[in-house]
Amino acid sequence: MENLEKIDLFNFDLEIGKQKAYLPLFYQVFGKPLGSAPVVVVNHSLTGNSNVTGEKGWWSGIVGPNRAVDTDYFTVIAFNIPGNGFDDNGENLIDNYRDYSTRDIARIFWEGLFFLKVQNVYAVIGGSLGGAIAWEMAALQPDKIDNLIPIASDWKATDWVIANVLIQDQILNHSDDPIVDARLHATLLYRTPEYVNQRFKRSKLDELSVLQIENWLLDHGFKLKSRYRLAAYKLMNHLLKTIDITRNRPDFLTVANAIEANIHLITVDTDYLFIADETRKTYRELTNKKQNVFYHQIQSIHGHDAYLIEFNQLSDILKPIFNLHKEQRYVSA
């Protein structure tokens, strides 16, 4: 947790009408110092955190020196969703998780940016839940983002997403080993049958008939349990259900049309959580109203988690977006 910083937020009004007297917002800054370079905000996913690059960075293949999001050129800010437990003592947890929404998190992130005197950002990028929060950030401040880049994500929770959130919530609240058991189910959502079948081929781990697939799934469950808190899992899972930039607003096209950012929709062809067909529908709708909308697709056997695996493909998509600012700077110089 090197260079982990904190902003104290007071009297924050939640979307449901309740007020939080105090919210600690933890964050990390990478690359160029604040105020000296264009800002990129990276939003983490369900089990992620602000440690996006470096030795233990979960997205070091994308963010870092000479990477697609080049920390030799950009200032990268990554906030922790309050309640994810990634803080000084691991106690930044939230019990009343159903009080919160992705819109609340987006508003909290803007509060953090304004506190840091950041009024405009070159890009807001995030995968899965992080991409949904990026959508909300753009809807809240439609003129303050140059590039909106949601990856393996959506502006809404489909019935399919909501159904899986319910299953996860039931497991998390009723299982004897909730984190492990919920992770077993979630891991299969994040991958594909083709990947699982191709990798394990019904093979056994040992003569005791322990199957490789069972061992792999349980290993994912126990690893998450060793580093993640139950309250954090409940909150993050719940936030997926609340994704909807049209809630208490006009229709999608009206909301999206107000967003001035270039919108880069990046999907995974085999995503079983935020399915690619929904993103293609969004793209078709948006192109009827806006010119600065772009569709990109990662092809992968890995499914939803491909944005954490297919770094070469994702880098090829992202580099032109981020290199554009460098090229414009050199031209103007």
Rank of each mutant, 00 (worst) to 15 (best):
A152F: 11
Y122G: 01
L188E: 00
I133A: 02
P24F: 07
N11S: 04
F115Y: 13
S50E: 02
L25M: 10
P33A: 05
A78G: 14
A106Q: 02
D99F: 14
E327V: 09
T279A: 03
A37S: 15
T242F: 06
P82K: 04
K56Y: 13
K290L: 15
L25G: 12
P178I: 04
D70E: 14
R183V: 01
D316P: 02
G90Q: 10
L273D: 09
K241E: 07
A78Y: 15
Y97N: 10
I162W: 07
L253W: 08
F222D: 01
R329A: 15
S101P: 06
G31Y: 13
S332P: 07
A306R: 13
Q19E: 11
I309C: 03
L235H: 09
G61S: 07
I162S: 14
S226K: 12
K56F: 09
R98C: 09
F274M: 03
I108K: 14
V255L: 01
V39L: 07
V76S: 03
L208T: 14
I149R: 02
I167T: 06
Q19G: 02
A182N: 06
K20C: 10
W160S: 07
F311E: 07
A333N: 14
N257T: 12
M137D: 01
I125Q: 08
K223P: 02
I62F: 05
F26T: 10
T53L: 06
V255N: 02
E15K: 08
L184N: 04
H185A: 15
I213H: 11
T158N: 01
N288T: 13
V69M: 05
W58V: 05
D95T: 15
D244E: 06
K290F: 11
T254F: 02
G85R: 11
F222M: 07
N248H: 13
W160R: 14
T279L: 00
V210K: 15
H304I: 04
R199A: 07
V41Y: 10
H174S: 12
L184A: 05
L113R: 10
D316M: 13
N257H: 04
G127V: 00
Q170N: 13
Y283P: 01
F294V: 01
Y283G: 01
Y272P: 03
D87H: 14
F322K: 11
Q19W: 01
K290Y: 07
I145D: 00
V161H: 03
I81L: 11
V124Q: 00
N11L: 01
Y27T: 08
I213T: 12
E285A: 07
G61I: 13
Q291A: 05
G57E: 00
A231P: 08
L116V: 08
R107E: 15
T192C: 07
N164V: 00
S45Q: 07
N96T: 08
F274V: 03
P150K: 01
P320Q: 12
A232I: 08
F26E: 09
D181L: 12
G83Q: 11
W110F: 04
D176N: 13
T47N: 12
H174M: 06
S175G: 06
K18M: 11
P250Q: 08
V40D: 12
